[in-house]
């Protein structure tokens, strides 16, 4: 077992943040932890890494209690950039980890090269941009070649090129047998690296395999909307009309069938758009109240 979390409870004063969280990671994979701000994602990650004591519950990492600091030889935790020493260089940070972990210089340089931070490694962190700091943190998390990587918002502050690089790195690490537990708000990026998501809602965990929820929806614009609607109804194909476009789920009807139905009624397709719906759709459903409130605020 790579990670086992059993019955975790945590409160801050009267506010209960975690209410009996239980989950297990048995095989190398990437799993995302998703939830709105203040839902307890960082608290959960901090408890898993023993930075924060739980009120109740048990965490086992690679068969050892999380209170054993030696687990950090086999796992790593990428935190936010406030943990970096502004007056040290990136090299100093990596060298310290190598000192403590007993790693050779070769591994340090290899990691720096892999993450792409070699060019600014000898500058003080206070001169780094946000993205550079994220890269350094990532290098610090990777340098000991961990079996389990816990990443708190790894994509924060990254430009698209860097985000793509990080995504590719995460996928490569998974291929190499590393389990990655990451928290992020970027649902589109999550969809690109994993289909396993842990939703944290009001202190409870909802574990979902997104491959089951992944849906393709066609948004179709036609020249004769009324005839098109009649034809779909006649063919018993469920649809929705939103902003003048017909929305049809692939699960309900394959695209060629829809085209055929329209052909019978002489309806011409003017434009068609294909959309894949995964975690975001699921997120919307799970956190319906929060997203609704958010939309209201936006209006």
């Amino acid at each position: 077992m790579i990670l086992s979390v059993k019955d975790l409870y945590k409160s801050y004063g009267k506010e209960q943040v975690l209410k009996g969280i239980t989950f297990e990671l048995a095989e190398p994979q990437i799993i995302a932890l998703v939830g709105p701000n203040g839902s307890g994602k960082s608290t959960l990650l901090n408890i898993i890494t023993n930075l924060l004591p739980a009120d109740k519950g048990e965490v086992t990492v690679l068969g050892k209690s999380n209170r054993d600091p030696n687990i950090f030889r086999e796992i790593s935790f990428m935190q936010d950039n406030t943990v970096l020493y502004e007056y040290l260089t990136g090299y100093d940070h990596l060298q310290f980890i190598c000192d403590v972990q007993g790693l050779p210089k070769k591994q340090l340089l290899k990691t720096a090269d892999r993450i792409g931070i070699t060019s600014y490694l000898n500058k003080k962190v206070k001169n780094y941009s946000l993205g550079m700091k994220q890269h350094l943190l990532l290098a610090m998390a990777v340098v000991n070649q961990p079996k389990l990587m816990i990443l708190d918002e790894p994509l924060n502050g990254l430009d698209p090129t860097s985000a793509i690089k990080v995504r590719e790195l995460l996928l490569a690490l998974r291929e190499e047998g590393t389990t990655i537990l990451l928290s992020s708000h970027n649902l589109a990026e999550i969809d690109r690296v994993t289909s396993s998501i842990l939703f944290l809602k009001k202190g409870n965990l909802i574990q979902e395999d997104m491959s089951a929820f992944e849906q393709i929806r066609y948004q179709i614009l036609v020249d004769k909307p009324e005839e098109a609607e009649r034809a779909l109804r006649a063919a018993s194909i469920p649809f929705e009309t939103i902003s003048g476009r017909l929305h049809v789920y692939q699960a309900d009807a394959a695209l060629d069938r829809v085209v055929r139905v329209f052909g019978f009624q002489d309806v011409t397709i003017v434009d068609i758009d294909k959309k894949v719906f995964g975690s975001e759709e699921r997120y919307r459903k799970i956190f319906a109240e929060e997203t609704k409130a958010h939309e209201l605020v936006e209006v």
Binding site: T49, N50, L51, P69, N70, I71, F72, R73, S76, F77, Q79, T82, V83, L84, Y85, E86, I97, V100, Q101
Partner: peptide, 16 residues
């Protein structure tokens, strides 16, 4: 405080 660098040290295989 503002820069809780202690949290970095605590994620090393080193006892408190």
């Amino acid at each position: 405080g503002k820069r809780p660098t202690l949290r970095l040290l605590q994620t090393m295989p080193t006892k408190r």
